[in-house]
Design a protein around this nucleic acid. Structure first.
Lengths: 213, 213
DNA sequence: TACAAAATACCGGGAAACCAGTAGAAAAAA
DNA sequence: TTTTTTCTACTGGTTTCCCGGTATTTTGTA
């Protein structure tokens, strides 16, 4: 949390120049906000973060170059004290929960009004989780299709999951990755366990439902 | 088409305040553009159009209140000479073609840069159809990602596909449907053939991609 | 540096999936 | 009423998957 008399250093990561300009314009009215740096690539921002201080980042989680969830995690690793407000134009329960699990401090829809934007910023600055109106409804109302806890996969597991989904068999994958088929098999079994699946069919379905494929 | 020395009256219809502000800011630099009216509802804009003159409208086709295609048609009926540039954040071939058939003069993605925006505006003003880069690619190349022909399934096959997706094994399904496991196996094999899949993983993926699960 | 997590690899065995055919009823379409 | 499609069922065999473990090495982080 910041002292109220200090100015906030804000960054915007979004691949849409229009959105960047819009946010800048709307936030210019706020006297508390000092610097607004903007980036169109996730990678760019991460490397900027390594050498510069940033208090708050408005992060579009639908970037072309990287997956939003991974990017959020990476940002939090590089700068654990940064406040990450996820930006998106769709409010899907599973995605929202997933990104919050990965350290985000809030979730805003791009159709938020200026007031909503400012309100969320302040909420986040005072340590709360901040959500725009529609998002709040989405996460509070009874999770109708309450999905089970989302399993966290390792790098290799994601890779293997992808290949499984492409119809590759264990020996084929082993050759492709220069691994023993037995190793690939182990990863497969770990995947099944993590997703609580009994076979590939369930595995793929679960992965699809969690938007991991 | 306008005379070059006349200023252009522009309108923006978008339910995202951020986008409106962004577009305004980016277009402010253009000396040719005079008035920028903005609306968050399609209906609002249409009634405005009945009493005011507008040369060009940037129209978000994903509004909450009305369908973009119908709105475009309505606008063209009220003011046939208006130039409609469709705005969207997704470039789906079928949608693009549909909206062009309904009188739109161009199609821009929201991730377009300022230069692209201006270029498209000028193209549209000089009577051409205007597209941002990615859209152009999408419509010129013939349906690349036009999915393969969707296989037609029999009643039983749909049933079995569903059960397979639920992780049921052949013997389990056989018992459930009072069939011989051998029969179920035959249906499975027919499913694999129809989807050109080598195993369940590919089968499920294909079925999901065709929205059959 | 020490500890946890991830990646690697193995054994043995049973179950299920997949392949290539064939073929007789039943239902739907011509 | 023929013809076609779908549903049913079979033989016989190969491959892959899935399960129960265990264990070493590598990597990352506290």
């Amino acid at each position: 949390m910041l002292e109220t008399n200090e100015k906030i250093i804000l960054a915007i990561v979004d691949d849409h120049p229009v959105v960047i300009e819009g946010l800048k314009t709307l936030l210019k009215q706020e006297p508390n906000i000092a610097v607004v740096n903007s980036f169109t690539r996730g990678k760019e921002f991460v490397s900027f973060l390594r050498t510069n201080e940033v208090d708050v980042v408005l992060l579009d989680i639908m970037l072309p170059d990287v997956n939003g969830i991974d990017l959020c995690k990476e940002i939090k690793q590089v700068a654990p004290d940064i406040i990450v407000l996820a930006l998106s134009n769709q409010a899907e329960r599973s995605i929202i929960l997933q990104i919050l699990q990965n350290g985000a401090n809030g979730y805003l829809l791009k159709n938020a009004s200026a007031e909503e934007l400012i309100r969320c910023l302040n909420e986040a600055l005072s340590g709360e989780l901040a959500f725009s109106k529609e998002v709040k409804e989405m996460i509070t109302r009874p999770g109708v299709n309450e999905l089970k806890k989302i399993p966290t996969l390792t790098k290799r597991e994601k890779q293997i999951l992808q290949l499984v989904a492409e119809g590759k068999t264990t020996p084929v994958m082993a050759k492709e990755l220069n691994l023993s088929p037995l190793t690939v098999d182990t990863h497969r079994r770990n995947l099944l366990q993590k997703f609580e699946a009994r076979n590939v069919a369930e595995l793929i379905m679960a992965a699809v439902q969690h938007k991991m494929l």
